[in-house]
């Protein structure tokens, strides 16, 4: 059985079994949970369907968060992206609109899939729905790639953490981008080692990111950080597919993330007492929602 203790072990197991990380993870989860592989696949397919539903919901006009501080980011971005793709071009700008939309859905207390967390729930769907709809990748490959994302997510959770309160935003959006980058690489036919490299690059590129939610809400800056998380996931995956290697191995990037998280002040770990939450405007928003 798989241990999910290190990326190195996971990659080695996939190479030894001559299979994709997703296949290995599916087989392992089937054994661990005592359910058939088909059943586990079906459950994951349901998760992907929920991701699509949250994105569609969030891309509609008039979607506001429960607090009223944010809303329509997904809708506005979709309108803009559909015109001529904007500066980033079509698949990318749509990926961003989907990430925003899923985060909008979360901020409105709608149903989402935590990937790995609710605060970072837009990143994996932004990447995967775009691969599915715009690059026309078969649904089975997309759903399978979520197992790869999940396997890496479990390693990050075991070696470091995935909670903003414990490791800052790097632990949430950083982990989510890493997971999504690895999934994208697998979808595009990359090797297990390449998936690990994409994870490493994405995590390294968000190292140090603090969790400073305004008014303690998962809205400012969280929603837009999901958008940048998608861009980092795509660029990390593309770099690896172009033949660029991660200079620091994934396991060491995860260790570094944990150390940086431990060194972070408590004010910057989801307590809404530092960073953007402590700015004059941030405080004003807090008063607007909760009063003085």
């Amino acid at each position: 059985m798989l241990s999910y203790n290190s990326v190195e072990e996971l990659v080695a197991a996939a190479v030894e079994n001559n299979c994709r990380i997703s296949e290995l993870c599916l087989r392992d989860q089937s054994k661990k949970m005592g359910l058939s592989e088909e059943k586990i696949y079906e459950n994951m397919e349901k998760c992907f369907d929920i991701m699509c539903e949250s994105a569609e919901w969030g891309e509609q006009k008039g979607r506001k968060s429960t607090s009223g501080l944010t809303g329509e980011e997904g809708y506005l971005m979709k309108q803009y992206a559909e015109k001529d793709g904007g500066l980033m071009g079509q698949p990318m700008s749509r990926a961003v609109s989907r990430a925003l939309a899923v985060s909008n859905c979360n901020a409105a207390m709608g149903k989402i899939v935590a990937t790995p967390t609710a605060g970072s729930c837009g990143i994996l769907p932004g990447c995967l729905i775009t691969a599915y709809r715009d690059r026309k990748i078969p649904k089975r490959d997309i759903v399978m790639s979520i197992f790869t994302a999940g396997a890496f997510g479990m390693i990050v959770a075991a070696k470091a953490c995935i909670a903003g309160a414990q490791g800052g935003c790097q632990a949430e959006c950083g982990s989510a981008s890493g997971m999504a980058a690895a999934a994208l690489v697998e979808i595009m036919g990359g090797t297990p080692k390449m998936c690990a490299d994409a994870l490493a690059i994405a995590i390294a590129n968000q190292e140090g990111l603090v969790c400073d939610p305004v008014a303690g809400l998962v809205e400012i800056p969280c929603i837009k950080r999901n958008a940048s998380g998608v861009v980092i996931a795509f660029s990390s995956a593309d770099m690896v597919l172009a033949g660029i290697e991660a200079k620091i191995p994934a396991d060491e990037c995860i260790d570094a993330m944990r150390e940086v998280g431990d060194a972070m002040s408590r004010d910057l770990k989801e307590t809404a007492t530092g960073g953007l939450a402590a700015t004059p405007t941030g405080k004003r928003y807090r008063e607007q929602v909760f009063g003085k």
Partner: peptide
């Protein structure tokens, strides 16, 4: 899950 935070809501 129903949002907005996995650790603060679902957990």
């Amino acid at each position: 899950m129903i949002g907005p935070s996995s650790s603060h809501t679902a957990g």
